[in-house]
Every structure is written in structure tokens, then in C-alpha cells.
Design a binder for these strands. Sequence first.
DNA 1: TCGCCCCTGTCGCATATGCAACGCCACATC
DNA 2: GATGTGGCGTTGCATATGCGACAGGGGCGA
Lengths: 199, 199
Amino acid sequence: MSRKTDLRVLRTRQLLQDALLDLIEVKPFESIQVKEIAEEAMVNRATFYLHYRDKYDLLIQSLADRVEVALSHIVVPQPVPNPITKTYFRDLILIVVRHFAAERRFYRLLLVESRLGITSEALETYIEAATLPWFRTLAKDPDGHAVDMALKFASSACVGVLKWWISNDQPMPEGALADHLVNLLVPALLDQFGVEWEA
Amino acid sequence: MSRKTDLRVLRTRQLLQDALLDLIEVKPFESIQVKEIAEEAMVNRATFYLHYRDKYDLLIQSLADRVEVALSHIVVPQPVPNPITKTYFRDLILIVVRHFAAERRFYRLLLVESRLGITSEALETYIEAATLPWFRTLAKDPDGHAVDMALKFASSACVGVLKWWISNDQPMPEGALADHLVNLLVPALLDQFGVEWEA
DNA sequence: TCGCCCCTGTCGCATATGCAACGCCACATC
DNA sequence: GATGTGGCGTTGCATATGCGACAGGGGCGA
């Protein structure tokens, strides 16, 4: 990535994002003022507006940045078995599930705060953009349109299920959720990924 | 106080001090580099030198600032009984003792890191400067030289005992330490403070 | 010994940020 | 309605900080 961004910019954004997180712990998002965020972050209020349009923008950017960072640490386990096994696929799903669980505060906030005006489409966009290229490495023909469609189908389904899982306070453990997701996805993806699956 | 200091200055110093604290948790002070502190604090190395001469200076300043902040929250309980009671005096001692206990990580570091070249005189200077005017409010004649001497005697004695207490991992609870200190100090201060003491 | 590497302090210049102030708007109180 | 109060978003100017570079020096292996 571009590591040429001024350190002050990175620092200021991090301080503002951390401040928002800390304040969310204490009071509902709607009642938080820009002034408070700036004070908590030890950043001038005017500087806030140099980086974010308003507190909603800060929230979305925070999510975007955190997702990017979190997913940058995710690597597709090597070697990729050929043909792809069911357990390997489950491990991949589990990685995403765990990411959601770790960032559940954020995701839940985005889902619960209906007044945010943040459509769930935005949320899906983040997740799909992050997971799509990642799934793509598993496909036989990474450039085929059919694969794109199939992958989008899969990621959308994952996002939908994960949203349900998060907003219902994780009614089942991570492993069980991953198992269910795999069982739902395998039949659909059977044609796009490896020739055969482990029984 | 002068609260007109630029917010950036306050923030930078706080970040550097916090970074030092975090690093001290992980590795010995001597092995910590200025470069590391700056990176941890998300502050440029050159900026470090705008505020501190070297890492030793940072350590001392950190102590000074923390002591100042901590002691600024300390108020002499009102009203001051006349004549001063033993229990009231004990409460005063206890406040200082608790401050030492809360900042024990810092004080212990200053005592243990002998290679710092920080003399314990510097430590005493901080404590005396902080406690002297504070004790002074209790004296009959706040401007007398005899009182100054007596108060210096008392604060030095307290610092010495507290150093022993901290470097020996607090072998007795705070209350007991305060009791012992009061019993040692009362006879010496009998002439300088209130006419009589509660039995 | 030499060269090499890395950290330290320090410099000049570019720029992100602080500060104070402003108009705007929503809301409250009389 | 008149008035105040407080947060929002923006601006111009002052300044703290980032960045890149530099010399100096200590460690370390050829």
C-alpha cells in the first residue's frame, strides 16, 4: 500500500477512531457530539472536519479501515489442496466468521443504529470486496464471469447469514455457524471450484 | 495554570510518555531506543528531540508530569481541625502513601534502574516540592525558617521510608505504613504544628 | 586496520494541525 | 416574537510536526 501518507494523518485518524470507539462504550452513538470526539482524541474540532464529513462518516471510515487491517492479516492457508476438501473450505469460512466475531461491536452498531441511514448494501460491499478476490484464488478460472457471479452469490449469502448471526447475539458458536454455512454453500459452488470434494 | 499550551504539544508528550510506559512493560529500559519510542507513539523521531533531550529526560519528565497531575488532584481535607488531630494527620500521610502506591511502577523504575544516573535526590526534590507547601498550610507560622526546616525534615523522612517501602515490594499495607510514619513524625513536629494533639 | 551498519542528534523546508472567529441553524426560555 | 444558548461546519493565519538528509560515533565482522 501507499506508506507515503503523512504520519500525522494516520495518527490523527487513529486517535479519532479510537476516541469514537471509547465513547461508544459509554453512551449511545446518536448522543455523541463531534466536540466530544475531538476532545477525547486530543484533536482540534476543525481537524476532525479535515478527515471526516461528520460522525457518521467517521463511523463508516472506521469500519472500512478496521476491516482492511483485519483482513490484511488473513492469508489463505497454504498449500491449497487439490481437489479442495470440505474441511479446508470450512476453515476459510471460519476465518471470516471469526473476523466478524472480533469486530462484532462495529458490525452490530452498523446494524442496530437504523437512524444511521447506512444501508446494509454498504456493509455487503465492504465484505464482498474483501472476500471476493480471496475466494477467487480458489476458482478454476479466476477470470470467468460465471465465477464472479457464483462468488458474489456466496459472499452475499455469507454476509446475510453473518448479519443475522451478529444481530441475534451469536445464537450458535463460531464452529457450528461455519459448518452450516459450508453445508449451504457447497452444493452451489460445486461446479465452480475444485472438481470434487472430500466426502 | 497556563492552559494556553498548544494542544499538539500536550498530545505529543502524552503519546511519547504512554509509549515509554508500554515499552517498559515489554523490555528493560536500557534496551529501549528513541526510534522505538517514536514509532510506538506514532511521532517522528525529530519531534521527540523537540521535547526531550534523550530517553532519560523523557523518563524524568514523565515522572514529573504524572506527579504533578496526581498531586493536583490532592486537596487538604477541609476543615483543618484545630488543634490538629492525630487521625487527621494520618489521613494526610495516607494520601501521599496512596499516590506512591498508584505510581509504584514509575518510582520503582527510578530506584531500580541504577544505571540511569538519576540520584534519589532528584526524586526527593519532586516529593518535597509537592508536599512542602501542602504541609505548610498546617503550620502555625508558615513563613518561619524553623518550620521550613522541620517540614523538610518530615518530607525527607517520608520519602526515605516510601522508597524503602516501594523497593521492598510494599511489605506492609498502606494503612500500617501511614500509622508508623505518623508515630515517628508526631514527636518531631509537636512543636511546629498545632498546640496539642488528640490523644 | 578497514568498511559496514545502525542509532543518535540536528538541520531546512513542506505541510498538517491548532486556534480563534464567523455565520448558520435548532432549540429553549421569557 | 425576541432573545439567548449551544453545536455544527468553515475560514485565515500561526505554528508544531513530518520528512529527508547529514555528520558523528559505537559495534562488529572480514
